[in-house]
């Protein structure tokens, strides 16, 4: 089979015609509307720009929203964390609030790309890129995050459970819409969570497997009062292990039930065999290990270490 031309011939040029820097959200939306689908929103640009190198993807204009005001906050409002989508991974990873109230997200953000990338790349961009192995998306999915999307028809809110559609495809259309908010419940007492990742080196590498785990413990009955497990890349999108979560919910905490849930999670996912990121069999086995380890560690962080 013949290899395509653009895999064999590369160029240093990133190509697009216009670079627009709106001052306000309305202006940004108007710019996008004007290009009628041929423009692309960028924030940090660390995913989009390399795609445009050597014309592997084509856009007429980039609309750089990174200077829009009030879209990079990291704050708590009641029981919720409100995260501006323009917050960079570096800031989120370093935020004491996120480390205390959304530890898996802080850990996930600390793994994205390199320090150089994390200084520029945004958490909103991580979601919009729609990659199944995205280190911020996987924990946000476990945190039951909801995103606010502004578009020509106004604003709408979408939970991440409805957000990821396919590899590189989400509920947001980056040629017409802009993410304006991310929110999720802050972790509180009797809750714990962590993020794990498996990779072939210790930095600057995409994960073969990423897993975010959250638990809430009923301290009276010593049961699982809440569980969230999200994984990537084991499917075209980040994935929640709903069956395994249900299995644990309300159950007394114990090693056996955790092992059973891990087994279930492993059998529920079917990562493809990848020459670069591992076979299906291996990654399924790793799902078992990670779910078991993640639940155990999350319980300890919730103050209920397994004996």
């Amino acid at each position: 089979m013949a290899q395509p031309f653009n895999k064999l011939h590369w160029s240093r040029f990133v190509e697009y015609d216009q670079y627009l820097v709106p001052d306000s959200l309305d202006q940004a939306l108007a710019m996008l509307a004007e290009f009628n689908g041929s423009a692309r929103v960028i924030a940090g640009g660390t995913d989009v720009v390399p795609e445009l190198r050597g014309r592997r993807a084509k856009v007429a204009a980039l609309v750089d929203i990174s200077r829009l005001p009030d879209m990079d906050g990291i704050e708590q409002e009641g029981g919720f964390i409100r995260l501006g989508p323009l917050a960079t991974h570096a800031r989120v990873a370093a935020s004491q609030l996120i480390r205390d109230k959304a530890a898996p997200l802080a850990e996930g953000c600390s793994w994205v790309g390199s320090p150089q990338i994390r200084n520029v790349a945004t958490v909103g961009g991580n979601l919009v890129s729609g990659q199944p192995a995205a280190d911020a998306s996987v924990p946000l999915f476990a945190l039951d995050a909801e995103v606010t999307i502004a578009g020509p028809q106004g604003e709408r809110r979408t939970p991440l459970s409805d957000f990821f559609l396919d590899v590189g495809k989400t509920a947001i259309d980056p040629s017409r819409e802009i993410m304006t908010g991310i929110s999720f419940p802050a972790l509180g007492e009797n809750q714990g969570g962590c993020y794990q990742r498996l990779a072939q080196r210790k930095a600057l590498v995409l994960p073969m497997l990423a897993c975010a785990t959250l638990v809430k413990v009923d301290p009276q009955n010593k049961t699982f009062a809440g569980v969230a497990l999200s994984l990537g890349p084991v499917a075209p999108t980040p994935m929640r292990e709903r069956v395994a979560e249900q299995m644990l919910l309300g159950q007394p905490i114990g090693k056996e039930i955790i092992a059973k849930a891990a087994e279930s999670a492993s059998s529920q996912c079917s990562p493809r065999d990848s020459l670069l990121r591992g076979s299906c069999d291996y990654r399924q086995a790793m799902v078992r290990v990670f779910v078991e380890r993640g639940l155990t560690r999350s319980l300890a962080l919730a103050g209920h270490a397994l004996s």
């Binding site: 072939q200 080196r201 210790k202 930095a203 600057l204 590498v205 995409l206 670069l276």
Partner: peptide, 14 residues
């Protein structure tokens, strides 16, 4: 794995 994203060489942390 033609690019340095996928052809992995040791980083400082390795």
């Amino acid at each position: 794995n033609m690019s340095l994203q996928n052809y992995l060489i040791p980083t400082m942390l390795d």
